[in-house]
Amino acid sequence: MVEGVKGNVLIVEDDAQLRDEVLVPGLKACGFNAWGVGSATELYRSIVVERFRLVVLDITLPDEDGFELVGHLRALSDIGIVVLSEIDSTAHRVRGLIEGADVYLTKPVDVDVLAASLHSLSRRVGNAAAMELASTGWRLEASGWRLVAPGGVAIALSLPERLLLNRLTASMPEPTTRSVLLEELSTVVPGFDPARLEMLIHRLRQKVARKAKATLPLIAVRGVGYTLALD
């Protein structure tokens, strides 16, 4: 996808008519390189195959809480986020901004106002590819037994953690399916219970947060598996 005059914009909106007949063509007419998806699942998939620096996000998606999705995106990048909501309440607006949204707009949205908001955000994020998370400074040591956080803190890994991160690193930037991860773990760790995969990932995230005071950029790609972004 060729980068537009004012940057790539991903529109995450499950109302296909609004997305494809109003928002996408309207933003293209304003000079943005816009395209749309209809769910959080498609957003996660887009993260690993496209480069975008601005996102317009419907807060009421069918497969994930929009506020949590905003928080997830903000924890991992400096991407510009505009939230769209049918609810015009102070509580919702405050929550959206606290989670990490830059702008909160209510529906029906005026495309000119949306374009102006995105234009302002595009100046803030500059020319950076917001989802290029390799710039976060994480790295896995050559031995594979220690994960080094951006601040230089080295975290010792258990055998299952090492296998998990090595497999995810080898697959970057593509996501690794859950079945591939389970096959890797089951082959090397005798008696590994498939039900333990999510717990392994959860505990690894907690371990990293506790020791490095940082969020590990290990992303769950819904319907696919997991992806990782390290230097």
Rank of each mutant, 00 (worst) to 15 (best):
Asp78Pro: 01
Ile81Ser: 02
Ile81Asn: 00
Val83Tyr: 04
Val83Phe: 07
Arg93Ile: 05
Val94Met: 04
Val94Ile: 15
Gly96Phe: 06
Ile98Pro: 00
Ile98Leu: 05
Glu99Pro: 00
Gly100Ala: 00
Asp102Cys: 05
Val103Leu: 04
Val103Lys: 10
Tyr104Ile: 03
Tyr104His: 10
Lys107Met: 10
Pro108Met: 02
Pro108Gln: 03
Val109Lys: 12
Val109Glu: 09
Asp110Met: 03
Asp112Ile: 04
Val113Pro: 00
Leu114Met: 05
Ala115Met: 11
Ser117Lys: 07
His119Val: 10
His119Trp: 06
Ser120Asp: 15
Ser120Met: 11
Ser122Leu: 03
Ser122Met: 06
Ser122Glu: 12
Val125Thr: 14
Val125His: 06
Asn127Asp: 11
Ala128Cys: 03
Ala128Ser: 13
Ala129Met: 07
Ala130Arg: 05
Met131His: 09
Glu132Leu: 04
Arg139Met: 03
Ala142Gly: 12
Gly144Arg: 06
Gly144Phe: 13
Trp145Ser: 09
Trp145Thr: 14
Arg146Ser: 02
Leu147Arg: 00
Leu147Asp: 02
Val148Glu: 10
Ala154Asp: 09
Ala154Trp: 08
Leu157Lys: 01
Ser158Glu: 14
Glu161Ala: 10
Glu161Phe: 02
Leu164Gln: 02
Asn166Phe: 06
Asn166Trp: 06
Arg167Cys: 04
Arg167Phe: 03
Arg167Tyr: 07
Leu168Lys: 01
Thr169Glu: 06
Ser171Leu: 09
Ser171Tyr: 07
